[in-house]
């Protein structure tokens, strides 16, 4: 995949990703228009399908609200690259199928507006604007299994209804 970088800082919390005032809704079409509203008012107007959020440490800290990765994914974001992720956001993203990559070097080497090429399967990230090529931290084996099945819901579905 290839997309344009939206660059943010450390500790981007779930309250700015999707404020609680919108969390009486939980579908992508209702949440996406408010994604990152309190952090970057123009984000939703500027973001295009396939674009990439690149941020610092502890992305998604705060609430357990799954509405946060749903809003980001619904807005068109194809991948979030961060130095680190808060643990509930990390779980939620894997569970709903929002690709996330931990790669501090790529974060340091990417600026707002850069074009990145990403291979989600291998974790390889290439900056097409400034030269740079990195490999993200690999997911642990068990998590890779959940991702390859298409998320946690698919995993549970397979366990509840095993193919005979």
């Amino acid at each position: 995949m290839e997309g344009t970088v939206f660059r943010y800082g450390d500790n981007i919390d779930t309250d700015v990703i999707i404020p609680a005032r919108y969390c009486t809704e939980y579908t992508a079409d209702k949440l996406a228009p408010h994604a990152l509203e309190d952090l970057d008012r123009t984000f939703v107007q500027r973001v295009k399908d396939g674009d990439i959020i690149v941020a610092g440490k502890n992305f998604g800290c705060g609430s357990s609200r799954e509405n946060a990765p749903i809003a980001i994914k619904g807005a068109g974001v194809a991948c979030v690259i961060a130095e680190s992720f808060a643990r509930i956001f990390y779980r939620n993203s894997i569970n709903i199928g929002l690709p996330i990559l931990e790669c501090p070097e790529a974060v340091q080497g990417s600026m707002e507006g850069d074009r990145l090429h990403i291979d989600i399967k291998t974790g390889e990230i290439e900056n097409l604007t400034q030269s740079g090529h990195w490999k993200a931290v690999a997911f642990p084996e068990g998590i890779q299994e959940i991702i390859s099945l298409g998320g946690l819901a698919a995993y549970v579905r397979a366990r509840l209804n095993p193919v005979k």
């Binding site: 709903i96 998320g151 819901a153």
Partner: peptide
């Protein structure tokens, strides 16, 4: 520990 809504649904089922 805190989890999201999909995790909760999985825990309900399993």
């Amino acid at each position: 520990t805190g989890v999201g809504s999909t995790d909760m649904a999985a825990a309900w089922a399993l």
